[in-house]
Design a protein around this nucleic acid. Structure first.
Lengths: 181, 181
DNA sequence: TTGTTTGTACAGTAAAAACTGTACAAAGTT
DNA sequence: AACTTTGTACAGTTTTTACTGTACAAACAA
C-alpha cells in the first residue's frame, strides 16, 4: 500500500471512531467527523475547507462548528490576511473533558437544583399546614426526604465540577509524565 | 389549593425537570418521565402501571425501562404473589452517576483506545519504512504524537473511572454528613 | 391438554432531528 | 458609491428516531 494511503486510513479510523462516540458530548456524528478532520488538519480551517473535505453543505458546517465551539472543543483562530472565519481544535483534551461538565452539566444541575428547592419549599409549607390529613402528611414527609437527598446530590455534583475546574482532580488521578500539568 | 394538588404539582415539576435533563445520560425525555414517576412511586411498578400513569403504549414502556435498566438507573424487584415484572429506581444517585461512566464511557473509551492503538501501530511501521519521502515522514511523526497524546488521555479517563468506581472520588469530593458513605 | 397472562419483536406511523439550498445582512473591497 | 465575499436565518426536504398496534412466544393456570 502507498504510504499516503496508509496514513489516510489510519486517520480515517480515528475520525470515524470519534464520530461514533461524540454523542457522549451531546453532539452528532457529523460534528464528530468535523472535529476529527480538524484534529488532523494542522492549519486552522475555514467553513469552505470543511465543506470541501466533508462534502457537506456550508450551512451544516456552520451550525455544527458552532456546536463544537459552544462546548469549547474548537476555537476561532486568526491568521493575518485571511478574511474567512478560521477554526481549530483546542488541543487540551483534559480541559475539553472538564468543559463538558462546566458547560453542559453545570447548566443542567442548576436547572434541577432550582426545581428541587422550589418543590422543597412548597412541601415544607404544606407539611406545616395544620389542615392536611395525617396520611397526606406522611407522604409529604417522604417526598421532602427524597428532595433533600436530591439537593445534596446536586450539591455534590457541583463540588465535583469545582474539583474538575480547579484541577484538583489531577491530584487524585494524575496525568502521565510529560503531559505538562 | 388542595393539599394533594400541591404535592402533585411539586412532584410534576421534578419529574419534568428530570425529563428535560436526562439526555446527559443519553436517554429520551420519556424515559426520564418514567424514571421520575418511579422515583415518587413508593412501590415497585409494573409495565401496566407505567402505561396507566404515563398514558403511553406498553411497548414504549418496555423499551425505555430496558434502557433505564441497562444504565442501572432502575432495577427489577420481586414481590411475592406478583407475576408481572416489577421495576423500581435504584436510590443511590451517586452510584448511578458512577454507573454512567462505568457503562457508557468505559465502552466508548475502550473502542477509541483500540482504534488509536491500531492506527499508532500502523504509523510507527510506516515511519520506519525507508521508502517514504522525508515530507511524508514528518507528517507521520506529527500524527504519531497526536495519537500518543490521545492514548494517554484515554488512559487517564480510564483511571478516572477507576477512581469513581473505587469511591476514591469521595475522598476528594466528600459527601455531606449523614449520607451513609 | 387448553386457556390466560405477560413481555417484546416487528412492521408501520408519527414526530423530531439533521441536512440542504436560497436568500440576505454584515463586512470588506474597489 | 457599487460590487464582492462570507456567515447564517429560514423554509423545505430527507433521514432518523420515537412511538404505536398487532402478533406471538414464553410462562403460568386450570
Amino acid at each position: 500500500m502507498e504510504g499516503r494511503e496508509t496514513l489516510d486510513k489510519a486517520r480515517e479510523r480515528i475520525i470515524e471512531t470519534i464520530a461514533q462516540n461524540i454523542h457522549l458530548y451531546g453532539l452528532t456524528a457529523s460534528a464528530g467527523r468535523q472535529y476529527g478532520t480538524m484534529f488532523f488538519h494542522d492549519e486552522p480551517m475555514t467553513l469552505d475547507d470543511m465543506t470541501e473535505e466533508l462534502g457537506m453543505s456550508k450551512t451544516s458546517m456552520s451550525t455544527s462548528v458552532r456546536a463544537l465551539a459552544e462546548l469549547k472543543l474548537v476555537e476561532r483562530a486568526w491568521v493575518r490576511g485571511v478574511r474567512k472565519d478560521l477554526y481549530q481544535v483546542k488541543d487540551d483534551w483534559y480541559q475539553s473533558f472538564i468543559n463538558l461538565f462546566s458547560i453542559k452539566w453545570r447548566r443542567s444541575i442548576s436547572l434541577q437544583s432550582v426545581a428541587v428547592k422550589k418543590s422543597l419549599r412548597e412541601l415544607e409549607q404544606l407539611k406545616n399546614n395544620p389542615d392536611i390529613s395525617e396520611e397526606l402528611k406522611e407522604i409529604v414527609e417522604m417526598d421532602i426526604n427524597k428532595l433533600q437527598y436530591a439537593r445534596d446530590y446536586f450539591d455534590w455534583l457541583d463540588r465535583l465540577i469545582d474539583a474538575f475546574e480547579d484541577h484538583d482532580i489531577f491530584d487524585l488521578v494524575p496525568l502521565k509524565e510529560g503531559n505538562g500539568e
